[in-house]
């Protein structure tokens, strides 16, 4: 039986994936936080990806496959720590993969790396430049992680490496930025803007990762859900109320509130409420015949307050 190591296993997405993979793989994981009430046959090691102890885990567990989703995606902590954990952690992981005979690697990046811009075409493919740092410097670490992993594909072709870029992930367990935003009773939006947004259910993201492992996919793939709706429709359908605010007012206020910790999102995120970032999932569907189980209505249903 193949052995999979999941980084960030105690997060919502990690737990779901561990349970999903348990039928067909031996599953272990690493995280900085414990997973209380995990299934008996899952081992979780409490380590920091940047530390030598993580290498020890890989050396003793000797996984044949690794799913890398141990990233800090929120902005509550120190900016430098976040960058270091995400980028150096990934670099260490990639090095260990080359030394300890890992055969398959799946890196869970995100669709945000393309960035939100007025000139974005609809349904961008994987070759579109990753420009997020131009307007949203706070997530440049995620762009760097994606770039590191994509370069790894060509440097070590004998390891089946796959970078997945899912669209906005929603669901009961997963803690995504967009999920937190839609879970609020009142969601501030930018007056006069209502971009199309794609969503995917957390279970379908698990399914996509499982498919990538099963097929031993190599390459970069957008992972797209059942469709797109305007932002205001998504807010309404998840049971919230949109509060449209004028941008010239919102930007400086949110910037100050973010700096003193009263507001969880940096101002770079505002552009994602203005311009569409829509991806084409054709390449992934062609490679795996992936089909989403959850439709838009079910996705929104899972987010109702």
């Amino acid at each position: 039986m193949e052995k999979v190591l999941i980084t960030g296993i105690s997060g919502g997405q990690g737990r779901l994936l561990a349970r999903r993979l348990l039928e067909s793989y031996e599953v272990c994981g690493v995280d900085r936080l414990a997973w209380e009430g995990r299934p008996r046959d899952v081992t979780v090691h409490l380590v920091d990806l940047r530390k030598k102890k993580f290498e020890d885990v890989i050396r003793t567990e000797l996984p044949t496959a690794v799913v890398h989703m141990g990233f800090i995606r929120h902005f509550r902590g120190d900016e430098r720590t976040r960058h270091d954990v995400n980028v150096r952690g990934t670099k260490q992981l990639l090095d260990h993969c080359t030394h300890y005979g890992v055969q398959k690697l799946v890196v869970l990046s995100s669709g945000y790396v393309y960035g939100a811009f007025p000139e974005n075409p609809y349904y961008m493919d994987e070759d579109h430049p990753l420009s997020a740092s131009r307007s949203y410097p706070e997530i440049r670490d995620l762009v760097e992680v994606d770039t590191l992993a994509s370069a790894f594909i060509w440097k070590y072709p004998h390891i089946r490496t796959c970078v997945l870029r899912p669209v906005n992930v929603l669901g009961y367990f997963v803690h995504s930025m967009i999920g937190g935003y839609l879970r609020e009773k009142y969601s501030p939006t930018i007056m006069g803007f209502d971009p199309m947004m794609q969503f995917i259910h957390e279970e379908d993201v698990c399914e996509a990762i499982a498919l990538a492992l099963q097929h031993g996919l190599q390459g970069v793939f957008n992972v797209v859900g059942p469709g797109a709706v305007p932002l205001h429709t998504a807010i309404r359908e998840t049971g919230g109320t949109a509060i449209p605010l004028p941008e010239p007012l919102v930007r400086p206020i949110f910037e100050r509130m973010f700096r003193i910790g009263l507001w969880p999102y940096p101002t770079g995120a505002i552009d994602f409420l203005k311009f569409p970032v829509t991806l084409s999932g054709k390449r992934f569907v062609d490679a795996t015949s992936f089909r989403c189980l959850f439709g838009l209505e079910e996705i929104f249903e899972s987010m109702r307050k």
């Binding site: 609809y122 349904y123 797109a228 709706v229 305007p230 429709t233 359908e237 569409p276 838009l296």
Partner: peptide, 9 residues
């Protein structure tokens, strides 16, 4: 789609 939009809005 079920909300009355095509993929391009």
């Amino acid at each position: 789609n079920e909300f009355g939009f095509d993929p391009f809005g």
